[in-house]
Amino acid sequence: MRAWDIPSPCVGICRLDPDTGFCQGCRRTIAEISAWPRLDAPDRLALLERLAERERAECEGTERGRADAARQPPPA
């Protein structure tokens, strides 16, 4: 699979949540948004999995999504 075969998770709701630092639409950080064009396919897939984890954490009402962002280094 090639990187450009994996679509951006952007949904066109581009507002950063001041509490979490996540985009309210796609749940990415600024670093993740800016790194997306340079990520290879495995890194894009890994980021998509982290975004899914954040969404699950948000639905569960936990702080896991916020902890995930603090723990993850920005993509290269």
Score class of each variant (00 low, 15 high):
residue 1 M to Y: 06
residue 1 M to N: 04
residue 1 M to H: 08
residue 2 R to I: 10
residue 2 R to F: 10
residue 2 R to L: 13
residue 3 A to W: 00
residue 3 A to F: 01
residue 3 A to E: 15
residue 5 D to M: 12
residue 5 D to Q: 15
residue 7 P to Y: 00
residue 7 P to V: 01
residue 10 C to S: 03
residue 12 G to F: 14
residue 12 G to S: 07
residue 12 G to H: 12
residue 13 I to F: 08
residue 13 I to V: 11
residue 13 I to S: 00
residue 13 I to N: 10
residue 14 C to T: 12
residue 14 C to Q: 07
residue 14 C to P: 07
residue 15 R to N: 10
residue 16 L to E: 06
residue 16 L to C: 05
residue 16 L to W: 11
residue 18 P to Q: 04
residue 18 P to S: 13
residue 18 P to C: 04
residue 20 T to D: 04
residue 20 T to W: 07
residue 21 G to N: 02
residue 21 G to V: 04
residue 21 G to R: 06
residue 21 G to W: 04
residue 24 Q to C: 14
residue 25 G to S: 13
residue 26 C to Q: 06
residue 26 C to H: 07
residue 26 C to R: 01
residue 28 R to H: 03
residue 28 R to T: 01
residue 28 R to E: 04
residue 29 T to E: 06
residue 30 I to M: 05
residue 31 A to E: 15
residue 32 E to W: 00
residue 33 I to M: 08
residue 34 S to Y: 08
residue 34 S to T: 14
residue 35 A to P: 01
residue 35 A to I: 07
residue 36 W to H: 09
residue 36 W to T: 12
residue 36 W to N: 12
residue 37 P to M: 09
residue 37 P to C: 01
residue 37 P to T: 04
residue 38 R to D: 09
residue 38 R to H: 10
residue 39 L to C: 00
residue 39 L to S: 00
residue 39 L to E: 00
residue 39 L to K: 02
residue 39 L to M: 15
residue 40 D to P: 06
residue 40 D to S: 15
residue 40 D to Q: 15
residue 41 A to H: 09
residue 41 A to W: 06
residue 41 A to S: 14
residue 42 P to Q: 03
residue 42 P to G: 01
residue 44 R to E: 05
residue 44 R to G: 12
residue 44 R to H: 08
residue 46 A to L: 12
residue 46 A to P: 10
residue 46 A to F: 07
residue 46 A to R: 15
residue 47 L to D: 11
residue 47 L to G: 10
residue 47 L to A: 13
residue 48 L to E: 05
residue 48 L to A: 03
residue 48 L to K: 13
residue 48 L to Y: 02
residue 48 L to W: 00
residue 49 E to G: 13
residue 50 R to M: 11
residue 50 R to E: 14
residue 50 R to F: 03
residue 51 L to V: 15
residue 52 A to F: 02
residue 52 A to E: 13
residue 52 A to C: 09
residue 53 E to K: 10
residue 54 R to Q: 12
residue 54 R to G: 12
residue 55 E to P: 00
residue 55 E to M: 01
residue 55 E to N: 08
residue 56 R to G: 02
residue 57 A to Q: 01
residue 58 E to V: 01
residue 59 C to V: 05
residue 59 C to I: 05
residue 62 T to E: 14
residue 62 T to C: 08
residue 63 E to G: 14
residue 63 E to H: 09
residue 64 R to F: 13
residue 64 R to K: 14
residue 64 R to W: 07
residue 65 G to Y: 12
residue 66 R to E: 07
residue 67 A to R: 14
residue 67 A to D: 12
residue 67 A to I: 08
residue 68 D to Y: 12
residue 68 D to K: 13
residue 69 A to I: 11
residue 69 A to D: 09
residue 71 R to W: 10
residue 71 R to D: 14
residue 72 Q to T: 01
residue 74 P to I: 08
residue 76 A to G: 06
residue 76 A to R: 08
